[in-house]
Design a protein around this nucleic acid. Structure first.
Ligand SMILES: [Mn+2]
Ligand SMILES: [Mn+2]
Ligand SMILES: [Mn+2]
Ligand SMILES: [Mn+2]
Lengths: 253, 253
DNA sequence: TTCTTTTGTTAGGGTGGGCTAATTTGTCCC
DNA sequence: GGGACAAATTAGCCCACCCTAACAAAAGAA
């Protein structure tokens, strides 16, 4: 149940998409909805039935979908939230439009009215006479990209008064994209061992078998239940139990 | 699948809770986890099994849960995101702590690293020499609450350079809490008709029966499948089809 | 009109994630 | 040791939401 309605996020998105389609093309067809939501048509049919039960759309099989008053209202609110959040991300923070929109479409369902209201107030505030002169958002974005450029140019200097926290943020916030568990490799994929986190005795055994950081390997075969796992390294084969393999961090190659 | 991991939002939250419990009490027990997540213990057991399968926790039945290295890592990242977003909402926007934390715990799973990074940069930027003097956040929050107070004092003036967008935001972003569909009333509940959105012929019939905006009514009885619905207004009974009732907006009394 | 293609629906299946009720296990006390 | 109680698990249910495969209907083309 999302903040804005009694509906799930998914259903709110369907509603939002229907509204957009009605605006853009005059009608909403199953195929189009499926395309925008990146799901199959069968999933759309199911969703439409649920929305119809809530009296938010008028749905008769094989006809194009229309919104009821209540549905139009709700869809509009979802869309407004979306657009507003995307604007904050884009105009104030300088997030690229596609990312801003994706994020907005997720956040729109879960952020409270209180936060949203204050965010709206904040954006207004940045336009107040004194601050508008300061061009807070613009200056931030310039310093942010400048900082990023400096980092990408592999300079060492990182100043605290600007953006460019990229590498710090990756370490703190993101999944460590580079490193995955050995178990995640699919047959045929190659990787380089980054870490072996097993407990000491097991670790020793693995290292003895040549499984140490830096070594390249190729995933060979995964047995039906993921156990055992067959890999090839330095030209010979090795069979590992899944629980062992999971302690091994690799970098995809 | 959340932004930060291959896990669902729910599992990320379990992980986050386990980390907090381990920090606070030295161990995480099923009962405590259930309490924090506001779910039943049976649900926790299920979640723990899924987390164990992903090698993120060590789980043996009836023993207290511990995090694996990978789990500790991921839990830490989720928590960092949570804390950071809550700080933005609280310190910059002035959202009350509990709301900020609730919102953060939802947004943490869906916001992109890019937006997060820029938000972090932005908060840093507000601390840069020139802007720190301006006290952007502080001034915003004061004007916001001042605006709200003025509105609550039922003054008419609304200035564009301050916050206090509350009523505007409610109209645009929130569900219209006051108005519900007639079908949502439970037997015994009273309501006042706010709108009748039915198509003209049906609308006419309803109005003829006395169902017009401003009229008070009491929900009497809802048949098994929600159809028909029995209401009482102006002292006599009326039976409506569900599809008709759904077009009627009422205000709960 | 009849055949083909496109569009949409139904049937059936899987996973995630919650629930209640019944049962098991561990602990503490007598 | 034998209850009593709390903590945890299992079994079994439900719903949301996605999928594929098979089928049905509508629209176009021949
Ligand atoms: Mn959305
Ligand atoms: Mn959206
Ligand atoms: Mn969360
Ligand atoms: Mn959280």
């Amino acid at each position: 149940m999302a903040q804005i309605s009694n509906l799930s996020c998914s259903l709110e998105d369907y509603l939002e998409i229907i509204l957009q389609l009605v605006h853009e093309k005059g009608e909403a067809r199953v195929k189009e909805i499926a395309a925008r939501k990146a799901v199959r048509m069968a999933s759309v049919t199911g969703a439409l039935k649920r929305l119809a039960k809530e009296q938010l759309i008028v749905y008769k099989a094989r006809e194009s979908v229309t919104l009821t008053d209540a549905g139009y209202d709700l869809a509009g609110r979802v869309l407004k939230r979306h657009q507003f959040i995307a604007r904050f991300l884009g105009e104030v923070l300088g997030v690229p439009a596609d990312t801003a929109s994706r994020d907005a479409c997720a956040i729109e369902h879960v952020i409270s009215l209180d936060s949203l209201d204050r965010l709206a107030g904040f954006m207004e505030f940045l336009k107040s006479p004194v601050l508008v002169e300061q061009d807070v958002a613009g200056r931030f974005q310039r310093s942010y990209t400048a900082g990023a450029a400096r980092l990408n140019g592999s300079e060492t200097g990182r100043s605290a008064d600007c953006g460019g926290l990229a590498d710090e943020a990756i370490r703190i916030f993101s999944r460590n994209a580079a490193q995955v568990q050995l178990t995640e490799l699919k047959p045929g994929e190659r990787g380089r061992v980054v870490s072996v986190r097993a407990s000491t005795p097991i670790r020793q055994r693995l290292v003895d078998m040549g499984l140490l950081p830096g070594v390249e390997l190729v995933m060979q075969r995964v047995a039906p239940l993921g156990d055992p796992i067959d890999i090839k390294l330095r030209g010979f084969h090795l069979s590992l139990r899944k629980i062992e393999a999971a302690t091994i961090g690799v970098e995809r190659l």
